[in-house]
């Protein structure tokens, strides 16, 4: 109950400060819209369907990019985590590629495969892939050696050990990386869509700027934040469920 009150208060104070800034500041009202203008713009993009289309386009790319990054990250993470030669061979390059911001890949990808859905999906993939890959590999490395002893004691095959013991044992850590990957994938989705696409929430921001509609721009930003918040909440619930199941909580 207290959380609800604090949440409402938090938004109320922010709105009040915003309103105050608009009233007190010496900005052109067309460039710095007040909360009620943004609310009106929100109504406008809901009514004419552009918001729905934007969310649909973004979510599609997001789901594809995120799922590929998760599946590839876990699969390859299990592989390099279990085969030490592969880990030592790939780790230096991975460590060098990882700090390159996914957006920095954009021009290269657009030149290579052109504009459209693909570059945005690649960006989301890049944002999600490395945290999942490295956490999975690390999770495999930190599996309690007792489990491995148990597996070899009972004559459990290598393959069954990987999928039946190592993967579930590392899963609480992997679930945490899925949480982190989801957040960064969502953040980079918008940057990906600001270049090289003609739809989606990121594109709506560019479009609003080009049409000098900061009210729509801010409304879109708030929607992006709202969806990110909901996604984070959902995966947080998933993570907690996993941890409970594995007896961590």
């Amino acid at each position: 109950m207290k959380t609800v009150i604090y949440t409402i208060a938090s938004f109320a104070v922010t709105l009040a400060l915003w309103e105050l800034a608009v009233l007190a500041g010496d900005f052109d009202s067309a460039l710095f819209p007040a909360p009620q203008d943004v609310a009106k713009a929100f109504g406008e993009i809901v009514a004419n369907g552009t918001l729905y289309d934007g969310i649909a386009a973004s979510m599609l790319r997001f789901v594809i990019g995120y799922l590929i990054s998760v599946v590839a990250g876990i699969a390859l993470g299990l592989l390099i985590g279990n085969v030490n030669v592969l880990f030592r061979l790939t780790n230096p390059v991975v460590q060098m590629i990882r700090p390159i911001a996914p957006v920095a890949w954009m021009p290269f990808i657009v030149l290579l495969i052109g504009i459209g859905d693909a570059p945005a999906i690649v960006i989301i993939f890049l944002a999600g892939f490395f945290p999942v890959l490295l956490t999975t590999a690390r999770g495999v490395h930190s599996v309690d050696t007792t489990y491995l002893k148990v597996a070899s004691n009972y004559g459990i095959s290598r393959l069954k050990t990987v999928f039946g013991i190592i993967l579930p044992a590392a899963f609480p850590q992997i679930a945490n990386s899925l949480h982190i990957a989801l957040g960064s994938a969502w953040i980079f989705l918008v940057s990906g869509e600001m270049v090289g696409t003609q739809s989606g929430l990121g594109y709506m921001i560019i479009d609003a700027r080009n049409n000098l509609r900061p009210d729509i721009l801010l409304a879109t930003m708030i929607v992006i934040g709202g969806i990110g918040f909901v996604l984070d909440f959902l995966i947080g619930k998933f993570e907690k469920k996993v941890l409970t199941h594995y007896g961590v909580y």
Binding site: Y154, G155, Y246
Partner: peptide
């Protein structure tokens, strides 16, 4: 070898399996 079973200080039970499934572990293959 499964002819000689080791019991560990920290049990080595698989936390994602219930008691029954843990006991069945060595019988599955």
């Amino acid at each position: 070898s499964a002819k000689y079973i080791t019991i560990f200080q920290h049990y080595g039970l698989l936390p994602w399996r219930n008691v029954k499934k843990n006991i069945e572990l060595g019988l599955e293959n």
